[in-house]
């Protein structure tokens, strides 16, 4: 009888342990629209957050299909971080589909100094213009510090009991980032004033940070696929400006850039602009390392 009781007790203890270990005590449940935000959240929240993201690193964040599994991710989330400025037009459908009444939505563009805010009337003749400004601000690594500060603030508000932990992680990350900024500044110093061609209008924040001159884009207008007439125009621009590199996001087809390269001798560089956008790119710092090493090494 005693043996039976002890056996039952042990089973109960094991079951309780299993239940407790499977529960994420004190973790803030976070979903981010992009893997860049996800990485920053993980750096600050570490094991006190349960984080996930929607848009794959190798996926164009402008176009995300509405999958019910994404709604499931948002269903139990407490915080939802987004880039904002109209990048994630799909986000609201996911929020509505999740039916999550307690979801707090944080737009990380709030503290960003926006660029390319169109003046006057915006319409589709200008391509995929973002009326509130260019949303690709995370490609300026100084903006990552602003994003991290916003994330910290949201985590502190959600989980004040972990404030010291979050603040310490944030400081550590900012300190690492500051060191990398010095390194990246140094690498990009030689590129200052050089002409460059980009595929899509994602790079204004990066280019202005490092003093690059954008000679042109492979897309005739933002989001509009390359055309032969625009390619011909670009040949002349490249020759006149002396640009020697086309930088493009690795989720776009390199067919048109390669055609231009074969005519002009310009070099095509494909880079990820999100975490997990390429094998081995598993953090924002590694992503920026890859971008800066490739651009500075080829200009």
């Amino acid at each position: 009888m005693d043996k039976e009781k002890i056996k039952m007790k042990n089973i109960l203890v094991i079951l309780l342990l299993l239940v407790f270990t499977s529960m994420n005590f004190g973790q803030v449940k976070v979903v981010a629209t992009t893997s860049v935000i996800y990485d920053l959240v993980k750096e600050i929240g570490k094991d006190k957050v349960e984080a996930d993201y929607i848009c794959r690193g190798d996926q164009d964040p402008h176009y995300v299909e509405i999958l019910p599994s994404y709604m499931l991710k948002l269903r139990k989330a407490e915080l939802f971080f987004k880039i904002g400025l109209g990048l994630e037009i799909w986000a609201q459908q996911l929020i509505d589909g999740s039916r999550n009444d307690n979801l707090k939505i944080i737009d990380l563009s709030n503290g960003i100094e926006k660029k390319e805010i169109p003046a006057g009337k915006v319409d589709a003749s200008q391509g995929d213009i973002h009326p509130y400004g260019n949303p690709h601000y995370w490609l300026d690594p100084y903006n990552a510090k602003i994003m991290a500060a916003e994330i910290l603030e949201a985590l502190l508000a959600k989980s004040p009991e972990n404030s010291e932990y979050f603040k310490k992680n944030y400081q550590n990350y900012i300190s690492t980032l500051d060191k990398k900024l010095i390194e990246w500044n140094s690498k990009m110093k030689k590129a200052e004033g050089r002409s460059i061609v980009f595929f899509h209008a994602s790079w204004i924040y990066f280019a202005e940070r490092y003093g690059l001159k954008i000679s042109g884009y492979v897309e005739p207008k933002p989001g509009i696929p390359p055309t032969p007439s625009h390619n011909a125009e670009l040949y002349n621009i490249i020759k006149k400006s002396g640009a020697n590199v086309i930088v493009m996001e690795n989720y776009y087809s390199d067919k048109a850039p390669n055609q231009i390269a074969s005519q002009t001798g310009i070099k095509v560089i494909k880079v990820p602009i999100a975490v997990f956008g390429m094998e081995g790119i598993d953090s924002y710092i590694k992503m920026m390392d890859y971008i800066i090493n490739n651009i500075s090494g080829n200009l």
């Binding site: 299909e65 509405i66 037009i89 459908q93």
Partner: peptide
């Protein structure tokens, strides 16, 4: 005009 993202 504005169009929504496509559901699966």
């Amino acid at each position: 005009g504005p169009h929504k993202a496509h559901p699966f």
